[in-house]
Design a protein around this nucleic acid. Structure first.
Lengths: 155, 155
DNA sequence: TATTGTTATACTCTATAACTATA
DNA sequence: TATAGTTATAGAGTATAACAATA
């Protein structure tokens, strides 16, 4: 199958390959889903980034500040403020490691675990664009996006 | 086919439906692609939002300020600053409509059209996660994401 | 009065650089 | 010296509210 979408040469738009088109569609869906994401976060009186940080802490192994920065894909300097807010809400606790007191482990408090459980419940319902797909399209999307993400870790 | 991913009951994570999982994967791919998007934009000395605004202006019909706000999915008050920057770069021109002088049409200048052409060329190559997919996965992704986006316009 | 675009302001998210306390 | 985290600062992107010009 051709990599290019066949289009009459009289069309104004240039021919576009499917990879570029898929990326454009992902961008559109993301933009359209932003109000949904923000409404979910604000229903917990959190920002989307704070929600995502909590999700990073649900792992089996406790994260330290720099791990959370990697998980969030942002600079470590920002994580201080994010964790400050979560800590002031009583959702997260900083604990200095005994072996190296520079390092701070991040632990969910019971209240934090409770909020996270409710967030996870709520997030079982994805934004409308995704939720409107039929079951087989959802499965297909998981498979293809899974391969896309795996291709990054493999290289 | 079941909507739920079958998992042993001893698994720590709760069972997750494919819609929620697909959304999570999209989020991961977006996060991983951010450096790529920023490098493309900054190679034109533009921010990602400015690039996206230019792309909005390549339509057959000229946009006015409020149209661009809708296209960008942000409040109209922000579009003023975005267009200010593009105008100061000589890429875009504001022109008051004759029939209603409150309304300002946005036009690409020749320089703006030239930059946009180069942006479109460059964007034929999507971020690595998408580009690494094989041709048939790219086509499938276009089809499924197209249906997802259509479902929003249909409702 | 209502609408288009602007200005003023504030908050989130982000990065860089300088700092501290440990190692 | 080097590293983990913090603080200070700045810029992009966002929203709300008040405003000017025009309808």
């Amino acid at each position: 199958m051709s990599e290019l979408i066949a289009e009459p040469s009289t069309t104004v738009a240039p021919p576009k390959n499917h990879g570029a088109r898929a990326w454009e569609l992902m961008y559109e869906i993301f933009k359209a889903s932003k109000p949904y994401v923000e409404s979910v976060a604000s229903s917990f009186e959190l920002t989307p980034q704070q929600v995502y940080a909590l999700k990073g802490l649900q792992r089996d192994r406790p994260l330290v500040m720099s791990d959370l920065a990697t998980f969030l894909g942002c600079d470590a300097s920002n994580v201080t403020a994010i964790v400050d807010k979560l800590e002031s809400r009583g959702l997260v606790e900083r604990r200095s490691a005994d072996r190296d007191r520079r390092v701070k482990a991040l632990l969910l408090t019971p209240a934090g675990q409770d909020v996270l459980d409710r967030i996870n419940d709520r997030m079982q319902l994805p934004p409308p664009a995704i939720n409107n797909l039929d079951a087989s399209d959802k499965v297909t999307l998981c498979e293809v996006l899974g391969r896309a993400l795996d291709s990054l870790n493999a290289s």
